[in-house]
């Protein structure tokens, strides 16, 4: 078959894939610079908090996107890896005095291993059966932690005060450093997605998502591909959980392992565009402010109007833009060339 490669095609301009990737990298760098400058113009704590949450969920949702978007394995149990990351870093800080900057990495590793352990049995299921299994596994994790006294049971864990320190991710009342912590997290998650998208893994994942039989016939190893996506996704989600735990200063199963987190992590990517580089950030930038604003203006006590607006928005977007918000921008650069992504 060596003949099929020759003659080499005549030299031509960089192909569409390379051009698109260059464009996306440039856009990413520009956006990172803009977001890094943004805190200079935001002084009120409410808006700062909003920005922190947008960035945190952009990163978490990008982590979810690696497995649920690119690889097409819709997980509704990511709260488990999120919680594992938060509990790991907090326990390491409480029991061993390990600073959360390192605990974050440990939390990521535990999250990644957790995702592998869940993936081992669950990836034998496909489609909806896989999604349902992840819901169940997430609930099991939640119940285990509620009844596990070693990690505080239902009463949870409080992060001890350690003074102002980047090592301990504690900054007194100042929210400014948190913007940079979460920006770093979101940028790291984006970079990972960017790198794997252009690699052999990225192609394998998308092939697995589109047609497993055809993928196998081209020597794509389906199960290892899914496991690799799960490990990366679980790691990043665990890191996000550790950051979240330090940010809020207190965790219990309801505040970090509840099934609602699994939905919150998946939704920005789904709304913004699954399997695209920009979907998670775009979805988060729309969803989080809508959710926070409707809650603060309409009140969350009993009326539930905020949730109706939130749900209505999701329905509206999925009806009008089934491929997600990224498709609004039309350019194949932003949509990542995935029409049905």
């Amino acid at each position: 078959m060596t003949d099929a490669r020759a003659p080499a095609p005549a030299p031509r301009r960089p192909n569409a894939i390379l051009r698109r990737r260059r464009r996306e990298l440039a856009l990413g760098a520009a956006l990172l610079a803009a977001l890094a400058a943004l805190p200079w113009f935001i002084s009120d704590v409410y808006t700062q908090n909003l920005l922190i949450l947008v960035l945190l969920y952009a990163g978490l949702s990008q982590a979810w996107n690696v497995l649920g978007g690119y690889c097409g394995q819709v997980s509704l149990g990511h709260a488990l890896y999120f919680g594992l990351g938060g509990y790991t870093s907090t326990m390491l800080l409480l029991d061993l005095g390990l600073p959360p900057v390192f605990g974050m990495v440990a939390g990521g590793l535990v999250g990644g291993v957790g995702a592998l352990l869940v993936g081992w049995p669950c990836f034998r299921l496909s489609g909806h059966y896989y999604a349902v299994a992840t819901v169940v596994v997430g609930e099991i994790g939640y119940l285990l932690f509620i009844n596990w006294d070693f990690v505080g049971g239902a009463s949870g864990l409080t992060v001890p005060i350690a003074g102002r320190s980047w090592l301990y991710l504690q900054f007194g009342v100042s929210k400014l450093p948190w913007i940079y912590v979460t920006l770093g997290f979101a940028a790291a998650a984006w970079t990972v997605a960017y790198l794997v998208e252009g690699s052999r893994w990225g192609y394998s994942w998308r092939a697995v998502k589109d047609d497993v039989t055809a993928a196998r016939s081209l020597a794509v190893r389906v199960f290892p591909s899914k496991m690799a996506a799960a490990a990366i996704s679980g790691f990043l989600t665990g890191v996000g959980g550790a950051i979240y735990a330090q940010y809020v200063g207190y965790i219990d199963p309801d505040s970090i392992l509840a099934g609602s987190f699994s939905i919150l992590i998946a939704l920005p990517a789904v709304l913004g565009g699954v399997g695209t580089l920009w979907g998670p950030l775009l979805g988060s930038a729309v969803l989080i402010p809508v959710s926070e604003l409707s809650r603060s203006y309409l009140g969350s006590s009993g009326s539930g109007v905020d949730l109706m607006i939130y749900g209505g928005l999701i329905v509206a977007v999925s009806l009008a833009r089934p491929a997600g918000l990224v498709s609004l921008f039309g350019t194949r650069g932003l949509a990542g060339g995935r029409g049905r992504g």
């Binding site: 569409a16 092939a207 047609d211 055809a214 060339g337 049905r340």
Partner: peptide, 14 residues
């Protein structure tokens, strides 16, 4: 059985 979320080049790259 084409990979319908990909371009021709991306399909063949798999």
């Amino acid at each position: 059985r084409s990979f319908d979320s990909m371009t021709v080049l991306e399909n063949v790259m798999v």
